[in-house]
Amino acid sequence: MEIHILDDLIREGKIDEAIEIIRLISENKDESYLEVLLNNLKATDNNILRNEIAIALSDIGNEKAVDILIGVLIHPKTTGSRGTLLYALENFDYTAHIFTIAGFIGSSSLEVSMQAFLLLEYVIDELSDKQKEQCKSILESTFKNTENEILKEALELLE
């Protein structure tokens, strides 16, 4: 299968066919599609396609995906569909972005809040005291008036 076929399918709006190919890429952990996946992750406004690409990138496991996943995560176009993007980060070293991730812990979306909390929990032992304090400060300032059990748990975890 030629790499440009995936780009063509996406450009032509044949999303279901593109997703079939993306799932094969994911299953085979085929790194030859890495750049195509990264470019389409950034470019697409289709939440379903974006989620499939994020999962494929996670399965492939190439660290090049981290910065792009974070960039897409914080982009306004992903408001309301960030849970899978956070989930996709699990297979990577995302500690350099822990402050960005912490900012999603008090989200009004349970999925987003929980996934961000889990990412923090996975790396808590690797964080310095200074990083923990910064995460705590982010949570306290961002979610001053928020009553959220996950947020409370995150603050306890950072103690």
Rank of each mutant, 00 (worst) to 15 (best):
G13P: 13
R50G: 13
K14S: 11
D93L: 08
D59L: 12
I74M: 09
Y122H: 11
S141C: 06
M114P: 01
L157E: 00
F99Y: 09
L37V: 05
S109Y: 14
I21N: 08
A116N: 06
N40Y: 10
S109G: 04
L119P: 04
A102P: 02
S141I: 08
D7S: 15
L155F: 00
N51T: 03
I138T: 12
D125H: 15
N148R: 01
E111H: 08
D125C: 07
F92S: 07
A154V: 01
C135P: 03
S58C: 11
I138F: 02
T100L: 02
E31C: 00
E35D: 13
D67H: 11
H75G: 09
H4C: 05
I124H: 06
K64E: 14
A88P: 07
D59S: 13
L73S: 08
Q115M: 13
I3G: 04
D45C: 04
A102K: 00
T79Q: 15
T142C: 09
A88N: 06
K42I: 05
K42H: 01
A43M: 12
K14W: 12
H4Y: 14
I105Y: 03
T95M: 08
L119H: 06
E27V: 03
K130R: 13
E90S: 11
I5H: 14
D93F: 10
A56P: 10
A102Q: 01
G71A: 06
L110W: 06
N47H: 12
N39D: 13
C135A: 12
Y33C: 02
A43C: 04
G13I: 11
N62T: 08
I105E: 02
G71I: 05
G61C: 08
E159D: 05
I5A: 12
E17D: 13
K77S: 14
L127W: 05
N145F: 13
A96I: 00
E153M: 05
D125K: 15
A116K: 02
I5N: 15
I55S: 04
N62S: 13
E52P: 01
N47P: 09
S109W: 12
S137V: 04
N39T: 07
M114F: 12
